[in-house]
């Protein structure tokens, strides 16, 4: 499916989604509350069949966090980027690790590095950092006076 067709199809599924121009892939933003049901549709709707979640990441925009999901379909070979704005103080979004199992690890990583709380995640312990680590290192305001070297 071309990007234009994808856009039409995705608007049908979720009219409230907003599209961003530019980039090689379709970029769309969804509200955090709408994400989980939308994700299920992305996975299961025939023409879309996004079965491969290859990247989950988060960007700290200082005012808010944006969580970014890169999805592709191994059948139709089309890709989309789904973004969702999260509140910085109370970053919460539903987990998708029951839809794409790779999300389990990626979400754990983003949870500890950005402080995003993935609701209903089976095991949201710290994966990379030590259990007693304070703070979210990849946020822009994170300061570690001991280990960070400023150039």
């Amino acid at each position: 499916m071309t990007n234009e067709e994808l856009k039409i199809k995705l608007t049908e599924l979720l009219p409230s989604a907003t599209f961003e121009e530019g980039g090689e892939w379709v970029n769309l933003s969804v509200a955090p509350a709408e994400w989980k049901p939308f994700a299920q549709q992305l996975r299961s709707v025939d023409g879309l069949a996004f079965d491969f979640l290859f990247c989950v990441t988060c960007v700290d925009w200082k005012t808010h966090l944006t969580i970014v999901y890169h999805l592709t379909s191994t059948i139709h070979r089309h890709s989309i980027v789904v973004k969702s704005k999260l509140d910085r103080a109370k970053a919460e979004i539903e987990t998708v690790c029951d839809i794409w199992r790779t999300a389990e690890f990626h979400e754990r990583e983003q949870a500890e590095l950005f402080g995003v709380n993935f609701l209903n995640h089976p095991d949201l312990r710290k994966l990379i950092l030590t259990d007693d680590f304070e703070g979210f290192p990849l946020r822009k305001d994170f300061e570690d006076p001991i280990n960070m070297i400023k150039l």
């Binding site: 290859f54 990247c55 990441t57 960007v59 700290d60 970014v68 890169h70 199992r101 790779t102 389990e104 690890f105 990626h106 990583e109 990849l138």
Partner: peptide
């Protein structure tokens, strides 16, 4: 496997956010 490099730029000389989608991380899961 697939290495993904995701750069978010704000037009500066340094990347605003960079993410490496490393193959080993997903494979290990």
């Amino acid at each position: 496997g697939e290495l993904g490099v995701y750069i978010v730029s704000e037009g500066a000389t340094t990347p605003y956010r960079i993410k490496f989608r490393s193959p080993g991380f997903s494979n290990l899961s």
